[in-house]
Design a protein around this nucleic acid. Structure first.
Lengths: 217, 217
DNA sequence: CGCGAGATTGATGCCGCTCAACACAAGTGG
DNA sequence: CCACTTGTGTTGAGCGGCATCAATCTCGCG
């Protein structure tokens, strides 16, 4: 499917103004400072949104996959970079073209606005997590969030595929990669999860994982 | 003025579907769990957005004042509380009524969407700040942000009026109130700011404050 | 004046960062 | 097939920044 995430009735119109882009793992879709000309929708693959401080500090703002949109901003330049974590297919719209569509299809506009508000809600959750939770709670929260995104965990129930590295997770949660690794180890020891190949996490005790994420450890 | 922050041409239509609400300092406009029926616009005064964890941990998500909107969410219930930091006047719209307006005035819809995207950009900044900056840098970043909102600092140039307590600032930045207080003291000692009455901060060296906020201390 | 909420400052302890060593898997070239 | 490399993950030891606990100070207000 091309350009997922919205009602099918809009897809033909969407496709008319979109072009398909393919990236290899490691390539950037855009970086901080690029003019924010386009909005993108992920067709297939994974990517990471991140921002770099001048001295090299990095904050990861999110991990996206099939159906997710990116590139919304109120500013004329992107304030973050988008890098492919795997081979990646996206479709691309000029923001102006999209604007035209939005005027033509009011219901589409509403859905689009609703998605932006959803991103905002996600960011509020993230702020609470990194602002007020300790390391173990943050990593548990991360797993719970990934668990709830069925597009990620649709292969094996109760197991999560994580395409990103420990360093990526750390920079997402405001931790170091060592601390993330230790949190995983503690959860293994407690029988909450098990890990086969570092990128496949099996949730053994969903209830306890949720408790951990909320500080009822 | 009623319902600020948008082009004047929409104000008559806005006013037709809005009602005015007045709160005293300390009252809640809404709390987490309330049905998200309304969207609000601040006419006058200050308020604080916050979220409470089960065990009492609090995260402040933002401080709003004249012209700011609140109540956008993709969810059917608010995930945060809004409390008046001062006597407060807001105008209130049913989301459904607003929806009708948005369909009628496409340009209004665009502006509204643009504001939501702006909130999102602000939250991304906040995530970077609390995820990757130390205590001094966070407090400096907070001051820089308040400095750049002219609606707050329009009285005296170079001085900022902070209606919130140290605890509010701490819960906004993911710190404790003591750490915030110490950060202010250090900046006083270094001649970057001076403080008269705890809620009025004078910026003595704007350049150095910005440097501090970016980690070039 | 005395009270109470908020702010400042100090002493101590702990969680997560830093530095470092080692483990493990995938890829490369001989 | 093995030796070597490279990227990534795990585990350990020690340290430091911020939290915690606590005392004192300031200011507005009855």
């Amino acid at each position: 499917m091309l350009c997922a995430g919205l009602d099918d009735e809009f897809l033909p119109a969407l496709n008319a103004i979109s072009s398909k882009v393919t990236l290899e793992k490691g390539e950037n879709l855009f970086i901080e400072g690029d003019r924010s000309t386009y909005v993108y929708n992920v067709i297939e693959g994974f990517l990471r949104l991140s921002r770099l401080g001048q001295d090299g500090r990095r904050q990861v703002l999110g991990f996206l996959t099939t159906g997710d949109y990116l590139g919304h901003t109120s500013r004329s330049e992107y304030t973050l970079s988008a890098e492919a974590l795997s081979d990646l297919k996206v479709c691309r719209f000029r923001r102006e073209d999209l604007q035209g569509l939005l005027s033509t299809y009011p219901r589409f506009e509403r859905q689009f606005h609703h998605m932006t508000a959803g991103l905002l809600d996600d960011m509020l959750d993230l702020v609470f997590t990194i602002g007020r939770k300790n390391a173990l709670e943050r990593v548990a929260s991360f797993l719970v969030y990934q668990m709830d995104r069925k597009s990620v965990s649709d292969t094996m129930p109760g197991s999560i595929w994580l395409p990103m590295t420990r360093a990526d997770i750390a920079d997402f949660l405001g931790l170091t990669l060592e601390t993330v690794s230790r949190a995983f180890s503690r959860m293994k020891k407690n029988g909450v999860i098990s890990i086969d190949h570092a990128h496949t996490i099996n949730i053994l005790d969903r209830g306890r994982l949720i408790d951990l994420s909320e500080g009822n450890g």
